[in-house]
Design a protein around this nucleic acid. Structure first.
Length: 443
RNA sequence: GUGAUUGUAGCUCAGUUGGUUAGAGCGCCGGAUUGUGGUUCCGGAGGUCGCGGGUUCGAACCCCGUCUUUCACCCCA
């Protein structure tokens, strides 16, 4: 067996795969554009310092760093302990949000605010592959910056629901608010230990309430603190009831109450769009989120989230453009495709040629080539068999490449200025005039 | 980064307690059959057993390392 293969966690996409990917991308693109988002593409790699520190410690570890060109050891102070920042000065894009923030900061004066863009490009993470997880995968993002209006959150939830409805995927949009989590930490007296609290809480559906309590203890929370967090572990089946319960619990926290007010306002407006769940345990790892956060989960398939997003109040500030609030969502194209495939929801999409023109002899090929060109002029995807092979072989090739029609155009046809067309699906053969190719039904 | 798992022909897989020349099906190539295929028959090509070490008289098989596959953890789309 040949040992050449794509690098770990990457894949080739053959024609059928490409067609499926294009299909999903075209749905996303159409919906993004229908909501007035303009396309943006940014480079595959950025300066290392643009990306470092934006995704948390765990995120930094997963950034693919690009070795300095030339003598990469030149900048290393201690050769026995080279630092990543000395060896590498560029890195592959880890997501689309940070490069977008960089773009906005750079062009803040030129952009009409609020500025909305969509972006469909690959991102790279140096993670170990597993189900639904690759080292190269596509994200499809829509973000708005320059407006704190919650109507954008409404709209983004609508986009989620519309896209998945159009794809026929049964999903639930989970909703939470960073301010709510901060409020809980406040009333439970957790100090600045917000992350330790949320990382464990986020695993509730996986490890259960007992597991979360255990992890809180391992992370150093006291019995008193742990007990104060108990309400966060209660089931949240009814959205209105959960909101009321939270409002009672967090009445002493200003940020908690503000977050709840936003969630109440938002849920009232988006509940009718599709399945929605208010989930206090939703945390999301990216530490730049400050307001509402979203995540999309597929029903009936064991798969990580199909998308996520949220509001970030000052992401462009770190790039020198403060005061711009942004909110955005991301779709994981590869996971969406895996789900659709597992559920058998992907349509069979045609690719390759519709017609194969046989080559019947050295004296007849010139006419056959003329016929092929005439077919192409009519918009028919056509291939001319490149040599005079046995008919069986040419038929087999037609099947293999998915051509529905074979065309015979030899000496007899040339004399009559006609062609013979055989439909391989039903075996029916027709004779067409050379100047009447366009009136035939080639589908 | 951690743990488990996988790798034999183009593909899917056999391969006994370690024993001579590693097999099958499908596919591929040629022929029967150079203007209407898919059936059938005959013949043929194709393998550093992922890679590198080690143990052994002898390794596809045992041991170590490494790469890769899949799955889980961490984290995430």
């Amino acid at each position: 067996m040949s040992q050449v293969r794509p690098a770990k966690g990457t894949r080739d996409f053959a024609a059928a795969d490409v067609m499926r990917r294009r299909h999903v991308m075209s749905v996303l693109q159409a919906v993004f554009e229908r909501y007035g988002y303009a396309p943006l593409e940014t480079p595959s790699f950025e300066n290392l310092e643009t990306l470092m520190g934006k995704y948390g410690d765990e995120g930094d570890r997963l950034i693919f760093k690009i070795l300095r060109s030339g003598d990469f050891m030149k900048s290393v102070a201690d050769p026995t302990q080279p630092k990543a920042s000395e060896l590498a000065d560029k890195a592959l894009r880890y997501d689309l949000t940070v490069p977008f923030a960089r773009f906005v900061a750079q062009n803040a004066g030129l952009l009409a605010m609020p500025f909305r863009r969509y972006q469909i490009q690959p991102v790279w993470r140096a993670d170990n592959p597993q189900k639904g997880r690759f080292r190269e995968f596509y994200q499809c993002d829509a973000d708005v910056v320059g407006s704190p209006s919650l109507w954008h959150e409404v709209e983004l939830v609508a986009i989620y629901q519309r896209v998945f409805a159009e794809l026929g995927l049964d999903v639930v949009v989970r909703l939470n608010h960073r301010g709510l989590l901060a409020g809980i930490a406040e009333v439970a007296g957790l100090g600045d230990r917000l992350t330790d609290f949320t990382v464990a809480l986020d695993k509730l559906d996986k490890i259960g309430a007992e597991g979360v309590r255990l992890e809180w203890r391992e992370r150093g929370f006291t019995e008193q603190q742990s007990a104060a967090l108990e309400p966060a572990l209660e089931p949240m089946t009814d959205m209105a009831a959960t909101l009321c319960r939270m409002e009672r619990w967090l009445s002493s926290s200003e940020q908690g109450m503000a977050a709840l007010a936003e969630l109440r306002w938002l849920t009232e407006r988006v509940a009718s769009f599709g399945p929605l769940a208010l989930d206090v345990t939703l945390a999301r790892g990216l530490n730049y989120y400050t307001g509402c956060i979203f995540e999309v989960q597929a029903n009936g398939v064991a798969m990580g989230s199909l998308g996520g997003g949220g509001r970030y109040d000052n992401l462009t500030g770190i790039f020198g453009a403060p005061g711009l609030s942004g909110v955005g969502i991301s779709f994981g194209l590869d996971r969406i495709l895996l789900c659709l495939e597992e559920l058998g929801l992907l349509p069979e999409l045609a690719f390759g040629p519709q017609a194969l023109v046989f080559q019947l002899g050295d004296q007849e090929v010139d006419y056959a080539f003329r016929v092929a060109e005439a077919l192409r002029a009519e918009g028919i995807r056509t291939v001319l068999y490149p040599e005079t092979a046995k008919i069986k072989k040419q038929f087999d090739y037609a099947e293999r490449i998915g051509a529905q029609f074979v065309v015979m155009a030899g000496a007899q046809e040339e004399r009559a200025q006609t062609i013979q067309v055989k439909n391989l699906r039903n075996g029916i053969q027709s004779e067409l005039a050379l100047d009447g190719l366009g009136s035939f039904d080639w589908s």
